[in-house]
Structures are given as C-alpha cells and as structure tokens.
Computed example of a mutant assay.
Amino acid sequence: MRRLWGRLSSVNVQKAVWGLEELGLAYERLEAGGAFGRVRDPDYVALNPNSLVPVMEEDGFVLWESNAILRYLARGHGAGSLWPEDPREAALVDQWLDWQATRFTPATRDAFWQTVRTPPERRDQATIDRSVAASEECAAILEAHLMGRPFMVGDRFTAADIAAGAAAHRWLHLDVPRTERPALRAWYERLRARPAVAVALPPLS
C-alpha cells in the first residue's frame, strides 16, 4: 500500500504526484498541510518531524523531502527512463534536482505568496520585485540550457524535467511581468502535453 500525504496546491507535493503518475504506480493521496492541517498532529509528526508535506508511506517505509521521494520513485521504478542508467546523465539529473530545490523554487516563493496567497491590500511590492528579479535569473539559466535541447538531460524526459517543470509551472503562471523565453516556453509546452500533468499540476492556488 502506497500513501502520499499532502495537498496538491504544494509544488513539492506536485513533484511526487507527477512522478507517481508518470510511472503508473498505484497510490492514495491524503490531504494535509495548509487549510487541511494535520501536519502538527502527533501521528503526522511521527512520520515527518519537520511537519511539512509531502510524506510517502510504502509498506511501512516512510520517506519525506519531495526530491528524495522523486529520486526513490525514479530510481526504483523508472531506471532507464525517469532515471538514466548512464552515471553522468544520472549526475546531471541530480544536479538539476538540487538546483530546483535550492535556487529556482526559493526564487519564486515570495512572488508566489504575495500575488497568489496574499490579499492585494497586504502585498509588498518590493518583496515581489526582488523575487521576480531572482526568478528571472533562474529563467535565464533555463533558457540558455534548453536551447537546442528537448528536455533537461539527454534527449528524453527524466526526473529533472519533473522537478524543474513543477517550478516552471508556478513561475509561468504568476501574474507578474516576465521576459518571454522561447526555449523555456517550448519545453514547458512539451511537458504540458504529458497526461500526468493534468493530474499533477492544477491551477495555482
């Protein structure tokens, strides 16, 4: 039995759901976090002492941290597809998963919270502007990397596209000014055509 705890409005939960859907793995998703609460309950803290989502349970095995979950799924069930067999390509997937977690998603966080989850009268434009500037730097890195490439690593879809794609989904749907980047946009549209995206990436909320 595989269970995933977390609300689908979380970009971190989206990555785990996307991985599960791409691999065709059976799972039950249980709402937690945000308005759903649960993450401070003792039984949840016993699963994840950080009180964050997502958490995956699989036959008594418990795993938290979204990219750890994505790596586990991709290595265990997607070797040769979501996770490359070539060690250098696998290292590049790891590189982009770390970049998404340490650079891209943190860059977009304030702009997302201010424009999506904060009432207009309480928004801080300076905070939004700083976040947009940092996000544009990350988008420029993606644009340069994706020129002439169909996907993040090699010539096929991998876990790197899931991690970066979930972050790009958030960035590209924020109501903020941004530079149009054709290679990034074309890559994102390729990702949107995948059936798993319809489940994993809902409108921002």
Rank of each mutant, 00 (worst) to 15 (best):
A111S: 07
A134Y: 03
A101M: 12
R149I: 07
L97P: 00
N67S: 11
L47T: 04
A107C: 04
E89L: 12
R75A: 11
R109H: 11
V132M: 09
G78P: 00
G76Q: 08
F104H: 12
Q114Y: 03
D110R: 10
T118A: 08
S51N: 13
T108L: 13
E143G: 11
G148K: 06
P106W: 00
W64M: 05
P120D: 07
A139C: 15
A68S: 15
I69V: 14
V116N: 05
G78E: 00
G76V: 06
G148L: 05
S135I: 08
T105V: 09
D124S: 12
S81P: 04
I141F: 15
N50W: 09
I141K: 14
E137Y: 14
Y72W: 15
T115F: 10
L47F: 09
P49D: 05
G78K: 00
V62L: 02
L142E: 02
L146Q: 03
P54M: 00
A133K: 13
T118R: 02
D94T: 06
W99I: 08
S66F: 01
H145E: 08
G60E: 01
T127K: 15
E136A: 15
W99N: 05
D94L: 04
E65T: 02
D110M: 12
W96M: 07
V45D: 05
R122A: 15
R75Y: 02
W96T: 07
L70K: 00
Y44P: 05
D98S: 14
R109A: 12
P84K: 02
P84N: 07
L146C: 10
E136P: 13
R88Q: 12
L52R: 15
T102K: 02
A111F: 01
T108W: 04
A126C: 11
V53I: 14
Q125V: 14
A68F: 05
P49K: 03
D110Y: 07
Q125P: 12
P87L: 03
S66L: 01
C138G: 13
A144N: 13
P87V: 07
F61W: 07
E65V: 06
E136V: 13
G148I: 10
P87Q: 01
P120A: 10
A90C: 02
P84D: 06
R149W: 04
A111E: 00
W64N: 11
L92M: 11
V53Y: 00
R130L: 10
P106K: 04
V116S: 06
W99H: 08
H77T: 08
P49C: 07
P54G: 05
V116W: 01
A79N: 04
P54W: 00
